[in-house]
Design a protein around this nucleic acid. Structure first.
Lengths: 153, 153
DNA sequence: AACTATTATGTTATATTATTACAAATAACG
DNA sequence: CGTTATTTGTAATAATATAACATAATAGTT
């Protein structure tokens, strides 16, 4: 995530939490911040490492609790196929996004394709399934890395 | 998976492996079989437990190696959000399926919705992303459990 | 301010999922 | 056969995640 937008993201997060009557504590804000300034998804234990020096003595529950909160509030997303977490790029509205995960460079793009959302909804409806949380992750190669590969072959 | 179709699935798997020049060994067949006769997805360690008595002294690598092979051959699928594995219901052709996962009863339905596949493909193409492996898992409540819940509320 | 209930954090231990590394055995192929 | 590939055996450990219970901080009420 571009860290130019970090202050804005944090401000927005604080506002959302205030509106909802939930508490964006220091620990939670730290985790959100670390995820947002990272250009890659981070695992819980990578987050743990980066919390040292910021939070006094972080241990796994410290991280997982903060993540649980942030996930609940839709401020971060979990990438199931990577066991890693990313900051949400547009937490202002509830949404079901899709993730394009490049296994070459590690970049992750969050997209919100209405046509995908619609077809998934329809597929569920067709069999009476009530979706709570869609997990849509496309693993492959991003445009940039595709170009690089085509150069060398 | 309905175990009436088990012999057919195994026969098909053997045929596919023969055609492809790969070996469906006893261990691999055992894992495939265990997944197919289970009505729920199984974790690697659940598989490990069920292998005792069938295979002499199974340890984690035993299971994970068999799973790796079966995943590569498209004979089983991994449910990333559950860390669990299921037998494929139609291994005869390559496909990108979606999984409807009921978090009430644990049932998993594998569906192959062409409209979903199409929209995902389009979403990737729009940004030049080359998808190798789509992960599409809808977590929620199946029709049967929705009905049950509506009864009691 | 003091009391209480709720929420958040501290702390220790452990459960669950997955991989590494190297040796031995088996199968495929000339 | 002899050689190479692949598969399996074996032991240890890495990586991810949760449980359980104690303490502390906060919010709301008197």
């Amino acid at each position: 995530m571009n860290n130019k937008v970090l202050p804005q993201i944090l401000k927005q997060a604080e506002e959302l939490c205030r509106e909802r009557g939930v508490r964006l504590t220091e620990q939670r804000k730290t985790v959100l911040e670390l995820l947002c300034i990272s250009d890659k998804p981070l695992s819980a234990y990578e987050l743990l490492e980066r919390m040292r020096g910021v939070v006094k003595n972080p241990v796994p529950p410290t991280v997982y609790r903060a993540l649980d909160f942030l996930l609940e509030q839709g401020l971060v997303h979990k990438l199931e196929s990577l066991h890693a977490y990313v900051g949400c790029t547009h937490p202002d509205h509830p949404h079901a996004s899709q993730f394009l995960i490049c296994d070459d460079c590690g970049e992750v793009a969050e997209v919100e394709d209405s046509s995908v959302a619609k077809s998934l909804k329809a597929a569920g409806k067709a069999v009476g399934f009530r979706t709570k949380r869609p997990v849509v992750e496309l693993l492959g190669t991003c445009a940039q890395c595709v170009a690089k590969q085509d150069d060398t072959t």
